[in-house]
Design a protein around this nucleic acid. Structure first.
Length: 292
DNA sequence: GCGTCCAGGTCTACC
DNA sequence: GGTAGACCTGGACGC
């Protein structure tokens, strides 16, 4: 099987990006730590999905697929992978903003700051809703259910994340009984229906020119999306001024910067406000510095 | 085995 | 605009 190569920008860390947050542990992503290999399944609009293996070597992401990829499909494949690893995003201003604090020097040095994301905004949004008010184990279970029940299969039997149309065709009962999404069931169905019928276009948010505050208002119109979920999605969209505070971050900040005592959200905000438009990403790098 | 708490929150009603 | 209570699930914990 020929290996396709995608060149990466300078200050890029494949490993740091894989471990940037929990997404690489959620289907259809599969992370193989021993080989530092990421596997995913992409629906490129063909009858079968495509299983894709990605490794890194000498400035390139090496891409292996379970089926030969025609020249016609290569641009779509490269575009999805570029989106996942944010290869077109310029982090110069982010690293410059961190330069005011020597404690953040490691971020540029290690090529950190790139948050891995799903190939579509819809997938990121659904997964984000599945992270709210539950343990990570339950998030994993819900996403696993969506992929395994509804995802279009590749030739090797793996499945991609389901399309809005496929999700919209299911009932609320299905999301409650099979996916175990609980009260989120109606939110997931409503989101899928609106996206499938063109009432909303969440993919357009990726290139939106709306100011972040307005885009956040737009995102929060989705049922099941509050402050945390909206700010989390904004980070994945490349807008880093929101902190996306959740219980894990609050506990982590307390342990690292507040002597184990709970800090107010205002105090957390004050701590990172010097990084201005990048305060959310600075916070996330600070919280996850020891993940590798 | 059973009850309670809580985990990577949000919605709605009410003030 | 701020707040209280309800909302699902499932694992951890104490008894």
């Amino acid at each position: 099987m020929p290996v396709l190569k995608i060149s990466t920008p300078s200050a890029f860390s494949f490993k740091r990006t894989l471990y940037s947050h929990g997404w690489s542990q959620l289907l259809p992503f599969e992370l193989e730590p021993s080989e530092l290999k990421l596997l995913t399944v992409l629906d490129l609009g063909e009858p079968d999905s495509l299983t894709v293996q990605m490794t890194y070597k000498e400035g390139n992401i090496a891409v292996r697929t379970d089926e030969p990829v025609s020249a016609r499909l290569r641009p779509a494949l490269f575009s999805r992978i570029s989106h996942i690893f944010r290869l077109d995003e310029d982090f110069t201003l982010f690293y410059r903003s961190l330069s005011i604090d020597p404690g953040f020097k490691w971020v540029k040095k290690e090529g950190a700051g790139r948050l891995i994301r799903s190939p579509t905004v819809f997938e990121d949004l659904v997964k984000t809703i599945c992270t709210t008010n539950c343990s990570w184990a339950l998030t994993d279970k819900m996403v696993r259910g969506l992929v395994n029940y509804l995802g279009k299969k590749s030739k090797d039997g793996r499945a991609a994340f389901p399309s809005p149309q496929t999700m919209a065709a299911e009932s609320e009962k299905f999301y409650r009984d099979e996916i175990r999404a609980g009260y989120r069931s109606s939110y997931l169905l409503e989101l899928a229906e609106k996206q499938a019928t063109g009432v909303i276009d969440v993919e357009s948010w990726a290139g939106s020119e709306l100011p972040t505050s307005e885009l956040k208002r737009e995102i929060k119109k989705i049922k099941g999306v509050g402050d945390y979920a909206a700010e989390n999605l904004l980070k994945l969209l490349g807008r880093y001024d929101g902190l996306a505070l959740d219980s894990w971050i609050r506990a982590r900040f307390a342990a690292i910067h507040n002597g184990g005592r709970t800090a107010t959200d205002q105090k957390i905000l004050r701590h990172y406000s010097r990084f201005k438009d990048y305060q959310g990403l600075a916070l996330w790098c600070d919280m996850t510095a020891d993940w590798i």
